[in-house]
Nucleic acid binder design. Structure first.
Lengths: 353, 353
DNA sequence: TGTCGTATGTCAACTCTTTGTCTCAAACTT
DNA sequence: AAGTTTGAGACAAAGAGTTGACATACGACA
């Protein structure tokens, strides 16, 4: 009998030199080497001339270690852990490492103090200050934001992308959403309204961020049983950045998301939702905040959709429509975290309205 | 006495001299030669007088190598890799910078994984070069288009992405634009107008294709001296797919492109173009075809821009505005290839108007 | 509170590889 | 005639390796 080994290893795995690993993990080559020397955190193979070569698994492991140390864990302790344990550790911690920061909101002004920074932390927070040097150049979120703004001002898409990617390795998928993308989006909107940047800048940044987010959310494998969410903006709402953020977040939360781009009429949204048997429709409204036809549009959407499909609406302008939406069952969620909580509830129980 | 074999040898696709390849890849002729000499990265054919001639495939390969080295990989190692492997390598290191598990990236079933994960490093490559040109499952563009349409109809973004990726592997970057993306976009527009698909489908597909294209075009090394093009759609033109295609193509042609998303007023476009010292502004107009304010908008744009900045306009509705644009120096280019030719002229001579 | 040991990131020095660049002369192209 | 292309060899800058020292933050203990 014959065994076909060929097809058993499905994907060619690459070996990465230390430079690549550094970029992929956000660690410096120095640190990677010293972790190996002191703690045997990884044991890369070597080329004939003694250069290190890391497998994908080792890159993953280093990334996990980087995230765990960023959350305050001691490298000397966790370096001994199995990779699986590391994953669990990061999974439990990541809530603490990322969530406690800024209650990231789509609308700027009201983002003040929904919760104190340390409240949710599972790990003691103070280390954050010392962690500064751990991951390269960027000490605070502020630096990253400034760099992103700078790149936007000069239309430097490459720089903006690199900044976002750096933020992603530093803060993780969830963290980058809350701590960088959301504030950045809010900041953009604000500066635009203040006339500090032009619409071109805002469009430009939107396109780059959108691209970054879709790429960020992509690699997640969706479980077949994952609930489905349709993400879009209602007719007349041309700004899609908020919707893209929500789509990325929803994907991160384990939903199968169908992203439809901006400005769709109710009937269209309903059609797509029905066809996908979506459990939730997520809408972002940013501007304008006084579209008289929007409430009717939403009422119509509510009517078209099956009863067990929930509608969530968020974004800077969402609250403006709150009074008009009292009647129809449309949930307003202006901050990302509480939207996450609601969605989490939904997949747990059937979200008893 | 010398015979010029150039045009005698059976030319499958166009062959490029080294200078052109340099521009297309961002590498210097020196580097291209030395990569060939030291690592046999590519083996260009020669003219009767020993000049190198590169095929499109080799240009693609060099571009991939350039991207991978830019990401930190060692040319000495990756030069041995199969082109297909290079593609995936580039996808993992530049696209999935934060992918939790790199192994999950592309599970193309057509990959005969001849080597286990550990083997690859030092062992000389098993020869699989013969697989290069063969087409597997998809014999005709039509099949791919059908698959793409199918995926669109069912809102299956994963399937649509995979279809596009496959097309990219099969036809190369340039080919996928001409043979798949453009027809697909046209088809979408047509079916939408005929009511065969809804706007939601069209939006959905646009978002996925857009994402695919930005990813496709993104990591190209741009020569510092590359001319700059600003890509967008004029006010009121909400469909950005055409613009995205043009942006991807322009990047492919070696331009530094600044993509601004859809629907920008003339002043904004002019501002961005000026700030970037753009040599060209590329606009896509699809719908509506009877916007009375558009000609004035374009005239204004022409007025704002420096004289040596050319404006090109394309897209399904472009011709509808042709009469109105007689006066202003705005060039109408409805097909991608001739736009490419024009841009090529521009960078060659200063495009004597 | 102050001091010391420990943990951990950073730096310097030196060597060896790798890789991009340069030069030059001859051949080719326009 | 002026500019490119080619091939070979030389060169230099950058990168990666190792080792050992150093600095800083934290915790423990007086």
């Amino acid at each position: 009998m014959r065994l076909y080994f060929v097809y058993i290893s499905p994907v060619v795995s690459f070996q990465h030199p230390i430079q690549v690993v550094a970029r992929l993990t956000g660690l410096t080559p120095h640190v990677i080497r010293v972790w190996e020397k002191r703690y045997q955190a990884v044991m890369p193979t070597r080329t004939g001339t003694n250069r290190r070569l890391y497998s994908d698994a080792e890159v993953d492991r280093l990334r996990l270690l980087a995230q765990a140390t960023a959350a305050g864990h001691k490298i000397g302790i966790i370096a001994k852990l199995e990779t699986e344990d590391l994953k669990r550790l990061v999974a439990t911690v990541s809530g603490g490492a990322t969530a406690p920061s800024i209650a990231a909101v789509l609308d700027t002004e009201s983002q003040a103090g929904l919760r104190g920074p340390a409240e949710i932390a599972l790990v003691s927070e103070p280390q954050r200050s010392m962690r500064s040097g751990t991951t390269r150049d960027w000490d605070h979120d502020g630096d990253l934001l400034r760099a992103a703004m700078e790149a936007t001002a000069t239309f430097d898409s490459g720089a903006l992308q690199r900044t976002l990617e750096r933020a992603a390795v530093q803060f993780g998928h969830n963290g980058v959403l809350h701590r960088v993308v959301c504030p950045l989006a809010a900041d953009l909107g604000e500066r635009w309204q203040q006339g500090l940047i032009t619409a071109a800048h805002e469009h430009f940044a939107s396109a780059v961020i959108r691209d970054f987010l879709t790429r960020l959310a992509r690699p997640y494998a969706v479980t077949p049983s994952a609930p489905c969410a349709v993400v879009t903006t209602p007719s007349g709402q041309l700004h899609e950045l908020g919707a893209v953020i929500v789509a990325a977040a929803a994907t991160h939360w384990g939903w199968k998301t169908v992203y439809l781009g901006p400005s769709l009429p109710a009937a269209e949204i309903a059609g797509a939702a029905t066809q996908n048997r979506a459990r939730a429709v997520l809408l972002s409204v940013v501007y304008p905040a006084d579209d008289a036809s929007l409430p009717a549009e939403l009422a119509q959407l509510r009517q078209y959709l099956p009863d067990d499909t929930e509608i969530f609406i968020g974004g800077r302008a969402a609250r403006a429509y709150a009074p008009a939406l009292k009647q129809v069952r449309v949930h307003i969620q202006t901050d990302l975290e509480s939207l996450g909580d609601r969605l989490e509830e939904m997949r747990a129980n059937r979200f008893g309205a």
